[in-house]
Design a protein around this nucleic acid. Structure first.
Length: 757
DNA sequence: GAGCTGTTCTTTTTT
DNA sequence: AGAACAGCTC
């Protein structure tokens, strides 16, 4: 091993993974087990010890964020590595795009090298246009995007009819044809087309390395196979965790980790040691592990997991604000604290209350280009400018009501059809457009600017000071007029546009000079379609320049459980641990298992403190005022039940209990008044129902027993309606009992309906 | 085309 | 549990 690798302290399992030489190897990497470190060391080991050039490796990630982390860490370890050498590092889609542009003969599949990348919504719009034009019968048009994706597999496997017996399968070939005609590819096309060309092509990398492989879908798996070649000429090293599959609802079905292992006949290694969470959190997490051996810890601390019950989401938010303030006063930074929830809309109350209470917080929602109207429009302008075959985008730019010259659909159609509908020389096209210019005035002029963009800038090269400036581009398109100078947003719009143009020009003048400027613009526009975040970084930089708030980085992070994957925090609050929310109402067993993995992912984000809370009054339909079953699945000795009850809640509970008891009494009375036959029938039905509920309850209890070996003595309670349960809490006025299958119930002692065993 | 019945999906989100 | 939709009847 090199000096560098020695400096990094790898455990024996990590070392084995780095040194492994199998043709295909999958590493089952538990949460917090140093997966990325292994990946980085593997790459360096291959590069430095095995003399594999970085250019001969393809390193694939699922998200841009992960791709950035890998290249950043790699370059920090080895500063002499250039960005040229890591061209094959990136997301599946960006690597596919690079291959299609640099190595693969896209012409064979019906596109030219100048193709552009479609926005995901664009494909659906195009499909709708085709449906209208061709008079196709397609059902569930509002769900067309999903249908197009989900039923493609069935279409490929030769099924003759779509699920709903409509014209969807006739749409697919028409859509593909249209995309070729307009010289653009959807995200899925990037993978499919490169897959086809790789399968019968010459070029293959020497090593294929994959991160978070459990998150890939079927198409990505096929892409991987094509990348490794029919004879598996490339070696495969994939890292993933089957216990962290939380996106299977987006596609697949099977667990991709094991499917990949099977398809490649790969050797499986494991990384069993967790370096993140304290012993209690790990012991709890182990109860939710679905694959592999128990996770081993590396820490001695056994702080308890706090479980709290709140009256409602509002009271919970107030409590959290107070609690977080205490943490902060004790010297913990806000940035070490995160609040998780199951549904996006749960964040509303939290944000409002935190803002009012002066707790700095940040909602983790991705900002894309589409959220900034003026940039959404500008990108379309460039998309057409660098791909004059893209009639669809041209139409969208011309008919946009917010920016540019106002133009009716009919006028836009005239302009676009005459210009690109018929093939011909540029001069002819322009002549044709000029012929209709009287009708649409400025629109037509702007259209010609876009269409003439490539010709106008064709002699410009990047790098040598020739490359156009942001101002030049702004003037070329006459953007001052197009951005509506009289509008209230003009100043901020102009700033955003100039900022975007500057970033584009900087990107175009970076790297090796002498390239065609318009090619660079196309590359920039294409990568911004795949990589919405880069613009986000620019936005942030602009904000900081304004000097808005510098202490902005020390904030509490609010996010969904899904968004928490891959992150870690000292302190984690997991809210809304209610039955019907965590887990969310499930239709089948697979869904339930995924909810459990989601909870597993959530709790394993915490390093030191974990607090779980549920509310008595969720105020959402379908969500029960009962604690999640998952709270019962955690060994009780790890928990510190610490209920915060307000007087209001107590009163409410009493009222609720009174109502319940009155209802029971009323029922009993009517029951006894009924005729004997009917009474028996009702009893039978009620009994059946009870049996069903008990079964699920026993299942939970059974799992709990199987999991926890060491259980503290519990006070058992019998109730004539709910059967046997476990005492949860007790005070001078009431008792709270957990019944398997019924959840938690509270009783007034005065009623004396429960019997201690 | 109003009114009915039956079915499916709803949440989570990346490229 | 409830909305949205498809397909049927009149």
């Amino acid at each position: 091993m090199t000096e560098e690798t020695k400096q990094i302290h790898l455990n024996e399992y990590q070392r084995a993974a780095v040194l492994d030489e199998s043709p295909a190897c999958v590493v089952n990497a538990n949460v917090g087990s140093g997966k990325t470190t292994v990946l980085i060391e593997k790459i360096l080991y291959l590069h430095q010890e095995k003399q594999v050039p970085l250019e001969r490796m393809v390193v694939l990630t699922f998200t841009n964020k992960a791709a950035d982390e890998i290249t950043e860490r790699l370059m920090r370890r080895e500063p002499q590595i250039t960005s040229e050498q890591v061209q094959g590092f990136g997301t599946f889609h960006s690597v596919a795009l690079r291959l299609l542009k640099d190595r693969l003969p896209v012409e064979q599949e019906g596109w030219t090298k100048e193709f552009t990348v479609m926005d995901p919504d664009e494909e659906t719009d195009l499909a709708l246009d085709i449906i209208t034009e061709q008079g196709l019968k397609v059902k569930y048009r509002n769900r067309l995007k999903k249908r197009l994706e989900q039923e493609y597999q069935a279409y490929l496997t030769g099924k003759t009819e779509s699920r709903y017996k409509d014209d969807l399968f006739r749409l697919y070939p028409l859509l593909l044809e249209e995309k070729k005609r307009q010289n653009k590819m959807s995200f899925a096309d990037l993978l499919r087309v490169s897959m086809n060309l790789l399968s019968d092509g010459e070029w293959h990398p020497e090593w294929v390395i994959v991160d978070e492989v459990q998150d890939s879908d079927r198409l990505q798996l096929e892409f991987l196979e094509a990348l490794c070649g029919p004879q598996k000429s490339a070696k495969l090293f994939a890292v993933g965790d089957p216990n962290q599959v939380i996106y299977s609802w987006r596609g697949t079905g099977e667990n991709m980790f094991f499917l990949l292992k099977h398809r490649f006949g790969a050797k499986e290694l494991t990384l069993p040691v967790n370096y993140r969470s304290n012993a209690s959190i790990l012991e709890a997490a182990n109860r939710f592990l679905q694959f592999g051996e128990q996770i081993r810890g590396s820490r001695e601390e056994t702080g308890k997991i706090v479980v709290k019950n709140h009256y409602d989401p509002f009271q919970e938010a107030e409590y959290l604000a107070e609690r977080i303030r205490t943490f902060h006063e004790k010297g913990e930074p806000y940035s070490g604290i995160a609040v998780f929830y199951r549904l996006q809309k749960q964040s509303e109350i939290l944000v409002k209350v935190f803002e009012r209470q002066g707790i700095p917080c940040e909602l983790s929602v991705k900002k894309t280009l589409k959220d900034i109207p003026v940039l959404d429009w500008l990108v379309k302008v460039f998309r057409f400018s660098v791909n004059p075959a893209d009639a669809q985008t041209a139409m969208q730019v011309l008919t946009d009501t917010r920016y540019g010259e106002k133009c009716t659909k009919k006028q836009a159609q005239d302009i676009v059809r005459r210009a690109i509908g018929e093939k011909g020389e540029t001069s002819e096209r322009i002549a044709a457009v000029t012929a209709v210019s009287g009708k649409a005035g400025g629109s037509d002029q702007f259209f010609r600017k876009m269409q003439g963009f490539q010709d106008y800038f064709s002699d410009r090269r990047t790098g040598e000071g020739e490359s156009p400036s942001a101002e030049e581009l702004f003037a070329y398109f006459g953007l001052k007029e197009m951005l509506h100078p009289t509008s209230a947003e003009y100043a901020s719009d102009e700033e955003k546009v100039i900022g975007f143009l500057e970033r584009m020009c900087t990107a175009c003048s970076a790297g090796t000079g002498g390239r065609d400027f318009t090619d660079c613009v196309r590359e920039f526009i294409n990568s911004s379609a795949l990589y919405g975040m880069k613009l986000d970084a620019g936005e942030k930089a602009a904000d900081e320049e304004k000097g808005a708030e510098e202490a902005d980085t020390d904030t509490v992070k609010l996010m969904t459980l899904h968004a928490s994957k891959g992150l870690e925090f000292d302190t984690v609050f997991l809210t809304g641990m209610n039955q019907g929310l965590i887990p969310l109402r499930c239709r089948n067993f697979e869904q339930e298992e995924e909810e459990r993995r989601l909870f597993f992912v959530g709790i394993t984000r915490a390093r030191n403190e974990l607090e779980l809370s549920w509310y008595t009054n969720p105020g959402e339909p379908g969500v029960l005022g009962e604690p999640s079953r998952y709270l019962q699945m955690i060994p009780q000795h790890l928990l510190k039940r610490d209920d915060v009850r307000t007087e209001e809640e107590k009163r409410n509970n009493l009222q609720q209990m009174r109502r319940e008891v009155q209802e029971q009494i009323r029922k009993k009375r009517t029951e006894s008044e009924l005729k004997p036959e009917k009474k028996d029938l009702e009893k039978k039905e009620a009994g059946d129902e009870d049996l069903g509920k008990k079964e699920t309850g026993d299942e939970v209890l059974g799992k709990e027993k199987a999991g926890s070996g060491t259980k503290p003595p519990e006070q058992r309670v019998r109730h004539r309606k709910y059967g046997e349960g476990i005492l949860v809490s007790e005070d001078e006025m009431m008792v709270e009992v957990e019944f398997p299958g019924y959840g938690r119930k509270q009783f007034l002692k005065a009623f004396g309906e429960e019997e201690m065993l």
